[in-house]
């Protein structure tokens, strides 16, 4: 997995929020695996940074956590999107798309503008 890309600074939170919106309540390991799978295993996620990121989101009130039991009957801590988190996701997704569009335009501009 040497040539896999690292998660860009600031995008991990957005990925976590999107994952929780799509799949509903999920534990840390599940979130990590989902992010890796969605990227087509192109991303390498450092688990050491995942948990602090989850903690930060929880402190900000975007997600909340509770201990529960997984499908295969294991104890795990489940994270769930709050309504504040939903709003944050919308806002950040919009910002991200906007930034992407600007960058795309910027990159496709071949002639210097007058």
């Amino acid at each position: 997995m040497g040539d896999k890309a690292d998660v860009w600074q600031g995008t991990l939170a957005l990925m976590i929020l999107k994952t929780l919106e799509t799949l509903g309540p999920l534990h840390g390991y599940g979130i990590a695996r989902r992010i890796e799978q969605t990227s087509g295993d192109l991303l390498s996620l450092n688990y050491g940074t995942l948990y602090p990121a989850l903690l930060k989101l929880e402190q900000e009130g975007s997600i909340e956590s509770a201990w529960g039991v997984s499908d295969n009957n294991r104890k795990a801590k489940y994270y769930k999107l709050t309504s504040a988190g939903r709003r944050q996701l919308e806002r950040e997704a919009r910002d991200w798309r906007q930034a992407q569009a600007i960058l795309a335009k910027f990159l496709s501009a071949t002639e210097p503008s007058t």
Partner: peptide
């Protein structure tokens, strides 16, 4: 303690997979 438990559960889930 809570984080230790979470790490343990993460490792268990990974091992199971």
């Amino acid at each position: 303690r809570d984080f230790d438990a979470e790490m343990a559960s993460h490792l268990e889930l990974a091992t199971a997979e």
